Computed example of a mutant assay.
Amino acid sequence: MKQKIIIFSIFLTTCLQAFSQQLVVEIGKAITSFDYENSQGSQLDNLQSTNQNYMYVGYRTKVFKDFIFASLGTNYSTYGAIGSDNVLNNYFEWETSYLGLNVGLDFRIFKIKKINFYVKSMFSSEFIIQGTQTLNDTVYDLVGADDFDQTNYFFRAGTFIDYSISEHITLFFQYMGGKSKQLRSSVSNIDQEKLRLVSHNFGFGLFINLKP
Rank of each mutant, 00 (worst) to 15 (best):
A157I: 05
L88E: 14
Y140K: 12
S77Y: 07
I112H: 15
M176E: 06
S121D: 05
I112T: 13
R156Q: 14
G178C: 12
N89Y: 06
K4N: 12
S180K: 01
G58H: 09
S166Q: 05
T13L: 12
S125H: 06
L195F: 05
G104L: 03
K113V: 04
I82H: 03
I161C: 13
T50W: 03
G58W: 03
E37V: 10
A18C: 01
L47T: 08
S84Q: 09
K29S: 12
F207G: 03
S20R: 04
T132A: 13
Y98D: 08
L99Y: 14
N102S: 14
Y140N: 11
T13F: 09
Y118T: 05
V87F: 11
K211P: 02
S9D: 07
F155G: 01
Y175P: 04
Y79N: 05
L16S: 01
V187A: 15
D137I: 08
S164N: 10
G80A: 07
F64E: 03
N209G: 03
R196S: 15
G144E: 08
Y153S: 10
N90C: 06
Q52G: 03
I169W: 00
R156D: 11
S71K: 14
F160A: 02
D137T: 13
N201P: 02
P212M: 02
N53K: 09
N38M: 06
Q133F: 11
K120F: 09
S20Q: 08
V198N: 07
S125E: 09
S166I: 01
Q48W: 07
T61C: 06
Y118S: 03
Y98I: 03
I68R: 01
S33N: 13
R60W: 01
L23F: 12
R156F: 07
Y36T: 01
I165S: 01
V24L: 12
K211N: 13
I165N: 01
L135P: 00
I10N: 02
Y98A: 04
N201E: 15
Y54W: 11
F202L: 11
T170K: 02
Y76F: 15
I82N: 12
V87S: 13
Y36P: 02
T78F: 07
G41P: 08
F8D: 00
R60G: 00
F204S: 14
I5A: 13
G205K: 02
N51G: 12
G41I: 02
I128C: 04
Q43E: 15
E193S: 12
V143M: 06
S42A: 14
Q130R: 09
